[in-house]
Structures are given as structure tokens and as C-alpha cells.
Simulated scan of single mutants.
Amino acid sequence: MEGSMDALVCEHPAQMVHGAIEAQLPALRRFAQRLTCSLSDREDLVQETVMRALRSSRQFHANTQLRSWLFTIMRNTFNTEYRRRCREPVGLDDGVFERLSISAPQEWAVRRSELRCAIGRLPPRSRRTLLLVAMGVSYIDTARLCGCEIGTVKSRVNRARKMLEDEIGRPGTL
């Protein structure tokens, strides 16, 4: 009896952890349920917590509450995983690339050439006004550069867009 008592006293806390973790699984599952809704995520979280606890069982101190220690590991694991997921882009479902189609680049080159020619046929004042606005220059600055009123700039841009639409079609239609 005395020899077995010495064995218990000499037992390392890490060995105690290995045996006691199984008893804490129901509490870990309940705590995981509070953190995540998905059953599979919950089971993954419990499994990852147990794996981390076993790996770092040498760091467990005998005067520490095992349940609190495991809950801390689980919370930290959950937080780490949450932050990692926030940084990752949302994935696409399988086969989405097969369903996507891309227009041939030659078509875009032809459309760009048609647009360039159509812009060249615009009246010079309308062309200059449209190009300034298309480059991101504000209406006020465009009016200043063209030496006219803001209303005139808006009218020129509107007429130029209409002329282009009549000549080559609406944007986005091929």
C-alpha cells in the first residue's frame, strides 16, 4: 500500500492529465456548443483541444483546475481559428470554374477598337469633355478646363454617351 501511495505522489502531472481528459469530454462538448453552431465544427474543436492539451500536458501544473485549463485551450483554439477564417477569402464551390465562361480576348480587342473609332468621330468639344470626365476629372474641374458651365459639361457628356451608345450599342452587351 505504501509503495502504491508513493507511485501516486511521484506521478507526473502530465500523466494525470492523460487519464483525466476523457472525463472532461462532456464538459468540453457543452462548452464547444456555446462557441459554434455546427456539429462538425464542434467536434473538430473538441478534438483539436484534446490534441493540444495532450501535446502540452507537461505544462499542466498539479494545482491548476484541469477543466479550466482545457476550457482556456479551447477558447484560444477557437479564437485563433476564427481570426484565421476572417483572413481567408471565402472559397468557391467545386466545379464553379467549369461553369464560368470568359469571352474571347479578340472580341474585347474588336470592341475596344470600335469604341476608339467611335470616340474619334465625336465632335471635338464633346470628345474632350467625355474623356476628361471618364479619366476621373470632376465636373467642376472639367468645366474650368473647357471654359464652360457645369451644366454644359453634363450636357456634352450626356450627348457624347448617347452618340456612342447609338453607334456601338449599350455597355455590357455584345
Rank of each mutant, 00 (worst) to 15 (best):
E149T: 15
V90S: 00
N158W: 15
L145F: 14
V90N: 00
L92R: 03
Q65K: 05
N79M: 05
A32S: 01
T152P: 04
W108C: 07
R111G: 07
R99Q: 11
R30W: 03
R52V: 08
S113E: 08
K154Y: 15
H61W: 12
E149L: 13
D44M: 07
R112Y: 01
D44N: 06
F31C: 04
E167A: 12
F97N: 01
G147Q: 15
R127H: 12
L35N: 11
L54G: 02
V110N: 01
L54K: 01
E149K: 12
R116T: 11
R34A: 06
D94N: 04
L122P: 07
P105I: 09
L92F: 00
C146K: 11
V90P: 00
G91P: 01
S40C: 02
R58K: 11
Q106V: 03
R75V: 00
T77W: 01
W69R: 02
V153P: 09
S113G: 08
R159G: 13
V50C: 03
A109Y: 02
A32E: 00
R170K: 15
G91A: 13
L45T: 10
S155G: 13
R84Y: 06
A104L: 02
L66V: 07
S126V: 11
L122M: 08
E81T: 11
R67D: 05
V110G: 01
P89Y: 13
Q106H: 01
R128T: 15
F78Y: 09
E167S: 05
I102E: 04
L130W: 15
R34G: 04
L66P: 03
N158Y: 15
M135N: 07
M51S: 05
R58E: 12
R75H: 13
S38C: 02
V133C: 10
G120W: 08
R52K: 06
G91L: 06
L131S: 14
